[in-house]
Design a protein around this nucleic acid. Structure first.
Length: 294
DNA sequence: CCTTATGCCTGAATGC
DNA sequence: TGCATTCAGGCATAAG
């Protein structure tokens, strides 16, 4: 489940490779992933265009090209990897053991889950692989991009100046919803998903079911900082891989080892030893420590 | 305003 | 290397 740290790690990887490369062809094998255009239009509009830069807002990736931008939501299992066809194909052996090992080490080859291929003119390509097909792609002209509904709907990204303590405090004061649910609302703050919301609440020592407007200013202050802390740590560790997440080079992230509560219900709290509990909030499994979080 | 349910999907894990 | 069920969840949408 790529959240902000995972998407940022992919962004940094693609930023190494894409700027300056020119698109030769875009092959879309699963047209339903394109939410505002069809495969033919996409290919015609992007053919011959150069990649300019790769940006990120919350969990959304933006591939800026000449005249156009591709807006990509990775959903649950989306993977964007870069591949240089001049290098030996590390997946040329196809036994399961070898495939699994080499996937863990690097490049993908297209398989039945590879739904979009952006081929560049210099024999390199970007592969989009998405097992559960929850991802969504949008094409916008450079002019229309800032008004894209997918961007307009987002609250501040925690690494943008508009994410301030005053803003978060005001947003939380407006809602009686559980704080965990509010943190995952992309219209309040964008980039947090199930993993980092649980982690931030643990760091801030706040119980996830608390009404957002019940937090006092001290708690909001802790939460404001905890959000930045868990996201920075996630980025520093190149994202959290449980199963599907990979970076632009096909590599796993290293942050799973550092998680305090996510996925640990039933196990002892690292801080106090109490058994971590599980509950459902906003339809999502939530893990928390009833002794440390109040 | 709010919450809950549903659909979209596949693969891993579980139960028999 | 069986077969059916459950679970995982980001997000849009509908219903209560």
């Amino acid at each position: 489940m790529p959240e902000l740290p995972e998407v940022e790690t992919i962004r940094r990887g693609l930023e190494k490779y894409l700027p300056g490369r020119r698109i030769a062809q875009v092959e879309v094998r699963l047209p339903k992933l394109l939410r505002n255009c069809d495969p033919q239009t996409l290919n015609e509009d992007l053919q011959g265009k150069e990649f300019l830069q790769v940006r990120r807002v919350g969990k959304i990736l933006i591939l800026d090209c000449e005249d156009w931008s591709l807006l990509v939501r990775l959903g649950m299992t989306g993977q964007l990897t870069f591949r240089d066809l001049h290098l030996p194909d590390q997946n040329s052996f196809t036994t399961h053991a070898i495939t699994g090992l080499q996937r863990a080490q690097g490049q993908f080859s297209p398989d039945k889950h590879t739904h979009i291929i952006i081929r560049c003119q210099d024999e390199t390509e970007v592969l989009y692989r998405d097992i559960r097909q929850f991802g969504k792609w949008y094409l916008y002209s450079t002019q229309d991009l800032p008004q894209a509904p997918e961007l307009q709907a987002l609250g501040p990204d925690p690494f943008q100046p508009s994410y301030t303590l005053a803003y978060l405090s005001a947003q939380l004061a407006k809602s009686r919803r559980p704080i965990k649910v509010v943190l995952m609302d992309q219209g309040v703050v964008c980039g947090l998903g199930n993993i980092y919301a649980d982690e931030a609440l643990f760091i801030a020592a706040i119980a996830p079911q608390r009404a957002a407007n019940s937090l006092n200013s001290e708690e909001v202050g802790r939460l404001y900082q905890a959000i930045l802390q868990v996201l920075r740590q996630g980025i520093a560790n190149r994202g959290t891989t449980f199963s599907d997440y990979r970076d632009a080079d096909g590599l796993r992230g290293g942050n799973a080892h550092y998680l305090q509560v996510y996925g640990r219900a039933g196990q002892p709290c690292y801080r106090c030893g109490a058994i971590l509990q599980k509950m459902t909030l906003g339809g999502r499994t939530t893990a928390w420590c009833p002794h440390c979080q109040h």
